[in-house]
Simulated scan of single mutants.
Amino acid sequence: MAERETRAVYPTALGASGPKTITLLGHDLAEDVMGSVGFGALAFWLATQRRPSPGETRVFEAVLAALADHGFTPTAIVTRLTYLSAPDSIQGALAAGLLGGGSRFLGVTEDTGRFLHDVVESLDGAVPSEGADWDAVALRTVQQQRTAGKFVPGLGHHVHKEGDPRTPRLMRIATEEGLFGPHLSLFAAIGRVHPTVLGRTLPLNGAGVCGAALADLGLPLPLLRGFALLARTAGLIGQLAEELRHPVARDIFLSVDLNNTSVPPDPYVPEPSTEESGNG
């Protein structure tokens, strides 16, 4: 008797389709979700597979708003330029902008969240309850980074040198919703104590405070950059919409193309190796 064929099974709690219905997270998409669940709440729900509270939704959507658009950043410029080059590929223009989300733009959200989480985890549950105690943790943390020659993620901004307006606003929203947790507490403390170590005052930037807030919401750390990209997708759509009405990409292109200067080649010369040769 032939062996019964084993059929592969791929379990998912997300979307599934039948002849007449679509389910999403165990609910009827058409009847229970559409028109009833906002996009921000749905994005949170999809990532955690639990429905957020109203307060969590407010903080999460405030983060998305904070990261949606910040002017002519490299991500916005490359999106507009890619559309200029390939107007038949909206997806390519959006993807080009999203691919620029790294350690200097957008990726700071994840970097800060992970950094703060590592410090909080190192406390082994002995989480401070008072601001002064958080200051001690923050001071030790900044000193260790300084000694190691490393930056503190979330500190500094190339434009908002006197303070990023997104940071106090998001902190107020989290406080109002009772969601000002250990990551935001540590981040705020870093803002208070770092001048003592660095000898200068740097702003706590918006991308960093967003990472702290997302970590306090308990969202998966590996996805923090994904939420920043989700927010920026809306901003890039806005950039493209404005490019359709008031194009600037061609001017940006021509400003470089018509003003470049030919110079002699500058060959790359490898730096001398500092490793000792082995005797083989």
Rank of each mutant, 00 (worst) to 15 (best):
132 A>E: 12
173 I>V: 15
155 L>P: 02
253 F>G: 04
88 D>W: 12
179 L>R: 10
118 D>W: 00
136 A>Y: 00
115 F>V: 07
215 A>T: 09
248 V>K: 13
251 D>G: 08
276 E>K: 15
267 P>W: 03
202 L>T: 11
116 L>H: 02
237 I>S: 00
149 G>I: 13
137 V>I: 09
101 G>M: 08
265 P>Q: 10
266 D>P: 00
219 L>G: 09
144 Q>G: 13
149 G>L: 14
258 L>D: 14
66 A>D: 06
23 T>H: 13
239 Q>T: 11
101 G>N: 07
247 P>Y: 13
156 G>T: 02
222 P>V: 09
34 M>Q: 13
74 P>A: 05
232 R>W: 04
251 D>M: 08
48 T>Q: 13
208 G>D: 03
91 Q>M: 10
73 T>Q: 13
157 H>V: 04
19 P>H: 15
110 E>C: 02
269 V>I: 13
146 R>E: 13
122 S>K: 01
124 D>R: 11
226 G>Q: 07
116 L>R: 05
184 L>N: 01
40 G>P: 06
194 H>F: 10
252 I>F: 14
187 F>V: 12
241 A>I: 10
104 R>T: 06
66 A>I: 10
168 P>A: 05
129 S>F: 04
92 G>V: 03
22 I>P: 00
132 A>V: 02
271 E>M: 05
203 P>L: 05
241 A>Y: 09
85 S>E: 09
66 A>H: 04
138 A>P: 00
196 T>Y: 07
179 L>Y: 06
269 V>D: 07
237 I>Q: 03
121 E>T: 03
114 R>M: 06
52 P>G: 08
123 L>C: 01
71 G>H: 07
96 A>K: 06
226 G>L: 10
258 L>R: 15
230 L>H: 07
229 L>S: 07
51 R>F: 12
81 L>F: 01
124 D>W: 00
140 R>C: 03
53 S>V: 03
65 A>V: 15
222 P>F: 06
73 T>N: 03
38 G>D: 14
2 A>T: 12
182 P>E: 01
203 P>H: 07
75 T>M: 10
26 G>Q: 03
258 L>E: 15
36 S>Y: 12
141 T>G: 00
35 G>L: 07
183 H>N: 11
69 D>G: 07
210 C>P: 05
182 P>L: 02
140 R>W: 01
41 A>T: 05
209 V>F: 07
65 A>P: 00
144 Q>Y: 00
269 V>W: 01
70 H>C: 02
236 L>A: 06
77 I>Q: 02
249 A>G: 06
157 H>R: 01
272 P>T: 06
169 R>C: 08
227 F>Y: 14
91 Q>W: 11
177 E>S: 12
154 G>E: 04
95 A>F: 10
76 A>N: 09
262 S>Y: 14
32 D>C: 04
68 A>T: 09
